[in-house]
Design a protein around this nucleic acid. Structure first.
Lengths: 203, 203, 203, 203
DNA sequence: AATGAATGAGGGTTCATTCAT
DNA sequence: AATGAATGAACCCTCATTCAT
């Protein structure tokens, strides 16, 4: 399908795995080439250097994640709980299905050189922002009752992110089950109280 | 307490900072020596090599953290909520007061060579275990109602750990306030329902 | 005149400038292509390699210089002083008008690989030869009195060549003035004593 | 005599020869190490890099040359002709006795990176200056009659420098003879007319 | 107890060049 | 006529480490 030459994708994939396993600093570009089944020079034909590989991988990681979030949010309605569910679902699924992309995005930002770091951090903030907006909306609507919205947000994000570290596909829990649990946990963290329930309680 | 000569501490401290800033793989042992104000030979006189430095730092990191946990738990009574509060308080404080130690312990375990890794991972598990025990006790006592104790535990740990990444001493929130918030959040996560409240509710 | 395609000239020109600025050894063939606005492959389509570029440039440099000498000598008569004047004029003008060609010819001969070096050095000697012939003729005619014809020749050549190193078109002295000075100096160096003067002195 | 470790001097010497033979750009630092009989790492233990080697060599070259000039000038009296003779003698001898140092100083200045270039060019100017001062003194005293002092100076310097390119110790002419010739030529170039001669001519 | 000297392996990167199309 | 892809060798340099003293 792709018109790009063969090496390209294999190189990125290999770099992703090496960076993820060893960390950027400890990864040798020779090993990346070897893993991609490509000569060292071929690698340099496609990428200017190690740093450019990292930039490409990080950008792609964020893009893929935000793409998944967008899709989920568009399918969700206006209800804050539904939107938070969408974000948590997208995030948990992404951590499960793309553990390598996840681990790099979550740990190797610091390996960016100053010239790329600022732009990347800015881009990265979108993750924070979309959770914040949903939570604030829930607070405004009176359906989220957490007294600490910032820390609740950090908690929800941190718990989803942590999945990338411990989840193994051969574990006991299915992805669907995990999504359900984390959605439930997230709603607990923001202290979700649906209107209907309260109305019922009142009535 | 230590019988080791003077240079020792400066070296460990320098190594900790370098590892924390650059990551183990990207850190040069020459820079550690330079930062410690010590000759390269002196460093090798005290330590067998880079890996031994990492082992020493990681071990010390865990020891310091577990020491803080022990102290907190001993001061706490038998009540699971009180014990969870003790653990969260100790963890949050440690993340705030020892950000460098924290960041290394949380990220550089993977840089251990196989011969040290197993032992370290084993040791590390104590963190998981002590949270698990407290939560299970709360469940058994009927004061924690979370349906997902494993994920609740991971959430509590993840949210405390994340503090090391974003907390800045010049921020708006005081350490004491932060501790209070995270204790509160943790109790929310495990769905703490104190007996007294329920008794009161019943009565 | 040339039947070669368009890119050709730009490549040679770019190579000349790069060689002149960085030296042959420090010049990258990629930079030459870039400077010429031509793809790397195009360069190799026209030229066999870096060494061939150097050969072409050096040959062209000598040809251009000797061409200028020939023209000047043909316009001059039989008088040794007049012929020396012609050579000095041609050399000075060439150094001024073709500083890049000059600097390469004067410094990059050593970068030739053995197979081209011998032929080139042979060709280069023509410069020495034509000065030597003129000076010997002046000695034979009794109008040049220098007791050290070889060193006088080297001096005249060296002083003309040096112009390529220090002359700047925005300097104080005009090309014509410079030519006049160097002709005068050259005649001084060979200790030129025109017959007429001596006859006048005698009479 | 030197308290420095063994490698030091051999490295500089090897670098000098390689730079002189191949040019800075075309010289490989591995070849320098090989030629010095030293490991690559040893080289880097003593010198920060290729550029530092060049700087050391160029500085040493200028120092040695200027040292020779100073000695010669101190032995000379006040007479401008005598001082010019001293300078020419020192320069010719230096070119003969130190052909390698000479060729590097005369050709590799351009290989200096910007940060070292300015200082070096400044230092280098002393060569020009000391010839200029002597020639101006001769003009002021009325013993040098050249109408083009700047170009006469450049000629004298260029002719001495050129010796480094063509002189071979196994040639026909002895160093002493060569010095004599070049002193004579230099005086010719500046159009030296000793007072005594003119007085004699007048008388 | 402490260090200056030295090493071999490997780091990231660029080189001149070739080849299939 | 012209080029994008790819290569292997070599580049300068830094690495963690050792050793004689």
């Amino acid at each position: 399908m792709s018109t790009r030459p063969a090496g390209h994708k294999a190189i990125i994939e290999a770099a992703r795995e090496e960076f993820s396993e060893q960390g950027y600093g400890a990864t040798s570009i020779r090993n990346i080439a070897k893993r991609a089944g490509v000569s060292l020079s071929a690698l340099y034909y496609y990428y200017k250097g190690k740093q450019e590989l990292l930039v490409a991988i990080l950008d792609d990681g964020l893009d893929a994640y935000f793409g998944a979030c967008d899709t989920a949010l568009q399918a969700a309605g206006d209800d804050p709980a539904e939107r938070l569910e969408a974000l948590v679902t997208a995030t948990v699924r992404f951590r499960i299905e793309h553990p390598v992309k996840s681990s790099i995005v979550l740990t190797e930002g610091r390996s960016l050189e100053p010239e790329h770091l600022a732009r990347y951090r800015k881009n990265e903030e979108r993750g924070t922002r979309q959770f914040r907006e949903v939570i604030e909306r829930g607070l405004a609507d009176g359906v989220f009752l957490t007294p600490y919205p910032d820390d609740a947000r950090r908690t929800v994000i941190a718990m989803c992110n942590a999945i990338a570290q411990w989840y193994r596909p051969d574990g006991e829990v299915t992805p669907d089950e995990l999504v359900e649990r984390y959605v439930s946990l997230a709603l607990t963290v923001v202290e979700y109280r649906p209107r209907s329930v309260r109305r019922a309680a009142r009535g």
